[in-house]
Design a protein around this nucleic acid. Structure first.
Lengths: 181, 181
DNA sequence: TAGGATGTGTTGAGTAATCCACACATCTAG
DNA sequence: CTAGATGTGTGGATTACTCAACACATCCTA
């Protein structure tokens, strides 16, 4: 991990936060590059030093979090769903601005599907339809079923302002998953 | 007013906020330049681009606010004490990090006297001992008396976490001043 | 008392960000 | 339709910041 100049970290952070704040206020398509640079208190040109355009910016933002979640998944591969979920929900809470924006605004349906893909993909390693309680079921159905369940639960959680502690919701969804996989 | 590069504004802002946060945590003498640069997320050398040392930094910080208060005073010279006080207490509230730090920490007695000087100096224009209710009184005593009163009230206000709205405390101290000057 | 750790203030080279300007696109109102 | 306003993406010159290194001071402790 080669060191990154603190100036680029600060610029990127300011830009990403700005875009999230703006997305909470209006539709993504209505956000201009100048809006973002103003909010981030950064020169307009600086945005182009890091991103092609605002769509590239949104992509990179989403991809970064998806990637982090995947890493968390793999570093927690030996845990139960309960324990693993706890790590995820902690991450959700730490980045609530991103997730609540992404799961609340209608324009961010793209993120929802990227997120669902990740969940299904990661659960695929865990599921076993050759024996046990899921013998005879379709793997695809099983994954889509519980993938949608988890994503929907996370959505609900953010839509309602994270009404219960990360640890608690992680535990409860973990119980449901451990019971079924 | 020549335009200042947005980078210097951001650096100065980060440095000033950092020093105030640190002063709320420990004695000024125990704060190192490295503490400040770490907290401000700025290179250590950057601090020396703007300030001679940490004492110069504190001086400039104080001087800036004293100067702003003086400007507010003069732009409100045609108001009653009530109205003028409101402008001041609004400024206090907007910069509560600075004032509550400066008036709470014991190491900042210097600011208190700079502040008192300003108040006395500005009230000097308003007071009239040649006629009216204050005829025969010593101007110096009068100024020190009500200067200390106002500074002490502001201190109390911050020490107790700004328990009443700026508008209200401004009004009440304004009544007391209008009644006496 | 010697030496390791930590802080200070300064230097120089390199780089990211700034600012301003440009050409061009889109949109809206008169 | 045209003119003005607003947004986009790019360019070049300049500047502020970064990073690593230095010599020196102070402090603590073994």
């Amino acid at each position: 991990m080669t060191k990154v100049d603190r100036r680029v970290l600060k610029s990127r952070e300011a830009i990403k936060t700005a875009v999230l704040e703006l997305m909470a206020e209006k539709n993504f398509d209505d956000i201009t590059i100048r809006d973002i640079s103003d909010r981030a208190n950064v020169n307009r040109g600086t945005i182009y030093l890091h991103y092609m355009d605002k769509y590239d910016l949104l992509d990179k933002l989403i991809e970064e979090h998806i990637s982090n979640l995947r890493d968390l998944c793999h570093s927690a591969s030996d845990m139960t769903f309960q324990e693993g979920n706890y790590v995820w929900f902690e991450y959700f809470a730490d980045n609530h601005l991103f997730f609540s924006t992404m799961l609340n605004t209608k324009s961010a349906a793209y993120f929802r599907s990227r997120f669902l893909d990740l969940v299904v993909q990661e659960y695929k390693v865990e599921v076993d339809i050759t024996e046990g309680k899921n013998q005879g079921l379709s793997e695809e159905v099983l994954l889509q079923f519980f993938g949608a369940a988890v994503v929907g639960t996370v959505e609900w959680w953010f839509r309602n302002g994270m009404p219960i502690a990360p640890r608690v919701i992680a535990e409860q969804t973990g119980i449901l998953l451990d019971r079924n996989f």
